[in-house]
Design a protein around this nucleic acid. Structure first.
Lengths: 228, 228
DNA sequence: CGGTTCTTTGAAGGTGATCAATAGAGGTGG
DNA sequence: CCACCTCTATTGATCACCTTCAAAGAACCG
């Protein structure tokens, strides 16, 4: 049984704009769902009967092209919204990157809630616009022709996301993605990602600590490499 | 003075969900705007005081990276919606690809209209979701490592867009973009686009007619090259 | 400790970018 | 109507970069 009062994203998710009782009612229409790392939460092609808010963990939105290559189209973080309100069938796979908890709503109930609560429609519109902006940022990042530029930009993005202060990133953080996921996100190969990270370390731009740990030693030069 | 009754996109734009009088009232808050090919309609960095519906013509959404290269992030077609309802400043340039007519609304008026008319919020949400989907499709297209694959996919997209029947494209259509714009959309150079088009013609996949005319001679093989 | 997965490193080759020059289209004015 | 000019598109040659194929090394889990 979902307990909105205890929900860690109760103030930041789209449903935060609802009154407590309205929110509880919406929650009753759905269920909680957990997924383990690597599990496909929703699969492309499935009928779109639900949508969801991510409570904890992380998701990737991906597509698989005909020759079996994965392409990551977006990452979803806690309080993020998942699902399409209008398409009859899901366009992309949603896969858990870590242990994940979701709050799932039936699409019908969500639709009714939108009609009843203009503020909710506004909140979803805001999230959708943010998602569009992120998608275009990724497009800009992958537009950079040089692999170093894309990777540097991604490292800076992760650093900014890791620290919760909005202005400047942390120097030390853990990569949320494997080499393979990074490669699929940037449109590169695993080998290139590995080599470029090695080169960054050799040049004194970063220090690696295990597989995931990254310390930015020279953020200024990194951001120059990223194209500002 | 805007005349909604005569508007060619009156049934397909977001404002189509409003009653005639409500729509007229919204229209009174704004103005009509025309732009010539190449004109920047809204510039990145400007304060976001307005949004707009595209009445006729075509727009590109673009960004310029620090070394001056343009990257096209999206194309906008008639009835499409332009503008950000939440960001304080515009993220990207909006540039006219052809002679263009827009119906511009003040953001405040649009905000009020959203609050008053749930159906409008729903319509905008739908458009935003569609834009997100298009952005991700572009991401998939540019993810293809081979230039031929990207270009073939784009030709098929244009063919599908040119014919208004939803299922299959036309064989004969005009490219809506210059070589340079195609290159910037696909993350390639003008030279590569030109060469690959030449190769397609040599191989009997297409026939070129002037600069813009394209006839698809072998759509099946093209779509194979595009990765299905 | 052995097996599996993920990552690193190496060598070779292909593909698109770059630089450079030519050719064609469109537009303007004489 | 043609000459001229500009912008766009084509074509060519060279080179850097990333991918590919291959194998070894490191981390993780039973």
């Amino acid at each position: 049984m979902p307990e909105c009062a205890l929900c860690p994203v109760r103030d930041s998710a789209a449903c935060a704009v609802l009154e407590d009782d309205e929110r509880e009612e919406l929650a009753r229409s759905g269920r909680n769902l957990t997924a383990r790392r690597g599990e496909t939460v929703f699969a492309a092609g499935e009928e779109n009967t639900v949508c969801a808010t991510l409570i904890s963990g992380a998701l990737k939105v991906r597509s698989i092209d005909p020759d079996g290559r994965e392409r990551i189209l977006a990452l979803v973080h806690p309080a993020g919204f998942v699902g399409e309100m209008f398409a009859p069938f899901a366009s992309h796979d949603i896969v858990a990157l870590t242990e994940t908890r979701l709050c799932v709503f039936g699409r019908g109930a969500m639709d009714r809630a939108i009609a009843d609560h203009p503020a909710l429609a506004r909140a979803l519109l805001r999230r959708s616009e943010a998602a569009l902006h992120e998608s275009r940022s990724l497009l800009e990042m992958t537009a950079q022709s040089r692999a170093e530029a894309r990777l540097a930009a991604l490292l800076l993005d992760f650093a900014a996301a890791a620290s919760h202060s909005p202005c400047h990133g942390t120097e030390r953080f853990d990569l949320p993605l494997s080499r393979g996921d990074i490669a699929n996100l940037l449109g590169l190969t695993i080998e290139t990602v590995s080599r470029k990270l090695g080169a960054f370390e050799t040049e004194g731009l970063i220090r690696r600590d295990g597989r995931r740990g990254i310390e930015l030693l020279d953020p200024a030069r990194l951001s120059h490499i990223a194209g500002r």
